[in-house]
Amino acid sequence: MGLTYQSTGTSTTREVFNVDTSDKQPVIALAGNPNTGKSTLFNRLTGLRQHTGNWPGKTVLQSQGSYIHEGRKYTMVDLPGTYSLLANSVEEQVARDFICFAKPDATVVVADATCLERNLNLALQVMEITKEVVLCVNLIDEARRKKLNIDIKKLNQRLGIPVVGTAASSGEGISDLLKLVSKVVTGTLKPEPKAVQYNPQVEDVVAKLEPIVKRVVGNELNSRWVSLRLLEGDDTIIHALEKFNGKEQVQILQEALA
């Protein structure tokens, strides 16, 4: 089973999402809550090298662009701004599916430094799906103005992923962010996200379901995360698995080639 999933490969899945992979360049996803300056960051990095369209089959705007860092080209995909990845809306579903199935080489979670608590919620959810996460604490200048002190080093230790403070509007911290991203992409920096521990009741049922999920899904997705979604009654992940790894994908590809 695992073999069939892997044989489809991520590069084809990326094409399903209309992502430019012509030069085999790394793909970076940009996730974050609405109003975090995510678009400002995206514009700052990609400048005029961007184009917009729709997510395949969805009336949700897709912005894609590229940037060059230390001579290497990166494709950057701006995911819709969402509070979570629980697939309650089309935007959340699009963001989740992209991280799950296009498997970006790194996902940058943009958080608003002035209300970190709300934004960490999304970061923790992304960290449950993928290891290649960089947290970008944006609007750090606004936070300073509001006399908020954010301990970036402690955040890094606490979350187990690289963290950088930025002010996208002035450019502060952007080069550090790009360095971290490139290190994660090349594997010289391996984030070890600390998994959220749920209460014993939840952990108990996860322990029961996870081995079964692992058998069916293999290494395609994080089995703990899939188990959690199924246990809370979110079946959309199964539909997504069928869509992106089952026959539908073949159909989409055939349509694209025709």
Binding site: Y83, L86, S89, E92, R118, N121
Partner: peptide, 11 residues
Amino acid sequence: GIKQRRLLDLG
């Protein structure tokens, strides 16, 4: 249903 999930989403 979906309303409940939206509200949960907001924390």
